[in-house]
Design a protein around this nucleic acid. Structure first.
Lengths: 133, 133, 133, 133
DNA sequence: GTGGTCTAGACCACG
DNA sequence: GTGGTCTAGACCACC
């Protein structure tokens, strides 16, 4: 349930929390209900400032992933699973497009790109071997 | 000679200039000589802040791509072409790796990524048809 | 007898209960007698927090709408019907004024407001056709 | 250019800033360009905390009204005027609908509502007489 | 107990 | 100079 926070990753901490929650919803780890830990709880267990956690949760509310239930904490929206599943590929696609555009601009051809992709995928797999192993 | 700057791309502007110069050297567009425009010239013609251009040039000097010739501005070093040709794929690879890492974190599997890559490559091709036309 | 609670309406839940009781008294639905359900009963049947219900009832006592009868719960006061009939339009008026003030601030002119009102009234009518059907 | 801030109005300060900016854009007071005062500037001139101003500006960026230009401050988006003009009525309509729903629920009939509206409009006019006078 | 707002002040990247 | 992030701690309304 706790996000892996890397304060030195360049990605803002609140954004890491946001992505973690979205991922968890897309994943089914978080279901439509009141499952997210309270701001204070999460702040204590991650050793982060409550404001940082609150900011992440606020963003998730803006995105329609969470909804505040007064005095009761924050719940996953009924619409969240669909939104998060859709976001998953969109977030990747957008960044990918930007990289490929640069590659194309500088005449890196399609096959070179495919090779890079395969080589990087291989490296990732070697770190995180398929769970079925 | 002028770089395509996208201030909203998330990549710092000075970094975009750096990358553009490196690719241009790898490309042969910039040869071993005094070809880079002065900070002031570049700043005016790109409507960028001179500080931004200066920072990019400073970085390029640190990387050994450019060298200051007293009173003459900045020249491409003899070692630059080799360095930049080597860098060419590395620059793309680095960005690509970052995207793929996130994809892995989101549990997008390898085949989904390959599909995204192919679909984005197709879109790029349709905009820039093969030069052999 | 049960109030329609909308936890996301911006109006505090206890306030929604208060308003519901006042309107019900104005309405004649609640008569001078012991008709209000106990805190516990209401809390269960509405799935609300008992504290929330209690707070609403406390407010209604302060307003002279309800009075505690020892061991019997809360009864509608003899003065309540008159008070509530008087309040009936005031409660609406107050909310209405707040909206119109904002509209004025946004420089929405009177005719635009009248159009909005008519269009919203029409929508309401189409959902709840006149009882004379 | 400065928003009228009322810390006791119940509406959060950052929200008052947000609405003020949106209103100013809808109005034509703020044009598509770099006109919004910097966070620090606005903070000083309104005696608010820079974070509060920043939060308002952040929200405006989320809404697509403002865009950050690195090192240069915040500019009004090309899409902003259209968005804000549309928002103007929507924000009012939404609140209005909620009031009218309550009224309908408690059998306040359409004519009573129209009378309330007219009487409130009259009160507002008497405070802010038409500028053409 | 819950989330929300606001202030204060430090630090960073970017131009 | 600009905005962005993070921490810290106070106060509030609501449940």
């Amino acid at each position: 349930m706790l996000p892996h926070i890397d304060p030195a990753s360049g990605i803002p901490i609140y954004e890491q929390i946001v992505r973690h929650v979205k991922f968890s919803v897309a994943n089914g780890t978080l279901r439509v209900d009141e499952q997210v830990p309270s701001v204070r709880e999460m702040a204590i267990s991650t050793a982060l400032n409550p404001n940082t956690v609150a900011r992440a949760y606020r963003e998730l509310q803006n995105d329609g992933i969470l909804i505040a239930i007064r005095g009761m904490g924050l719940a996953v929206t009924p619409a969240a699973p669909q939104l998060c599943r859709k976001l998953r590929l969109d977030l990747i696609r957008e960044r990918l497009r930007s990289v490929l555009q640069e590659a194309a601009q500088y005449q890196v051809d399609a096959d070179e790109i495919r090779q890079l992709v395969e080589s990087e995928l291989k490296k990732l797999n070697s770190r995180k071997p398929p769970s079925g192993t």
